[in-house]
Amino acid sequence: MLTWLVRRLIQALFVVLAMTVIVFIGVHIIGNPVDILISPEADQAERARIIANLGLDQPLWRQYLVFLNGALHGDLGRSFVFNEPALKLIAGRMPATMELAVTAVLMSVVIGVPLGLYAGLKPNGLLGRTIMAGSILGFSLPTFWVGLMLIMVFAVQLGWLPSTGRGQTAALFGVQWSFLTWDGLRHMAMPALNLSLFNISLVLRLTRAGVRETLPMDFIKFARAKGLSPARVIFVHVLKNIMIPVVTVVGLELGSTIAFAVVTESVFAWPGMGKLIIDSINVLDRPVIVAYLMMIVLLFITINLLVDILYTMLDPRVRLETKG
């Protein structure tokens, strides 16, 4: 188990390193940083001074090493717009995104698993078919459009829910959270639902497929032959088997959910790091873009690692293999 963990950690480290190269190349080479960083009004001498100041006259590999060194010390440059360390800026916006993404992922399980269970148990019923048709919509509708429709119906037409912002927040561990206040929850309802729509469809389909696959198994028939109640057969014997792939996928989806929060945050003006990155791209605030990308990559790799460990703990069969 330990050697396996160490090996996974080293692997993860290499991926992070590879991503720093890609991000560096992506941002420093494709777009010309000189054009971005220096105002067009600056004269020749001014230009040369700034270029030297930023180290842009150095060879590429040196620039990369400087960048890497900074990254290791938690220094990814200062935002041009906010004149604050980029990393600090991102970190400040992170809780808003995290609570939105985690809520969305939890919602996908709370809504997706029961629906999928039902659709799996009654695949030919009207409701079962409707659920499946709905999941196709959840997969194919663009998130931003669904968000707009939510606003149009629940904020503009019905006036039930607020359409923008985080609402009132309360502090916990020195961080402001929306989920701690009623007003915050009301603000979070639509964005979270919007963000979770894709995941709901995914979890729903996964659960349904799992039910269809598990039900004809001998061990289910044997459980019924023991005289167990249908509830016990479904909620213990079937569900426990399905939860392994569902938890794995949901865990892995947390990363993409955080990434896709970019869209939802823009629609609902949710002040998270997704909205920040879009704003930063629009004004070409390069250090913030780099900081965001590095942060996301790190997040992804951490999540993948955690899911791997969780998966190993959940499935007794895998657990044994890694021991042996």
């Binding site: 590879a18 991000v23 941002v27 777009g31 993409s256 990434a259 896709f260 791209i281 873009i289 993948n304």
Partner: peptide, 20 residues
């Protein structure tokens, strides 16, 4: 594998952030 392990929106953002 590397490409598919990152969500499409993120990759597209990264590229368009560079290209405009």
């Amino acid at each position: 594998d590397l490409q598919l392990s990152f969500p499409s929106i993120l990759v597209a953002l990264m590229i368009l952030a560079g290209l405009g």
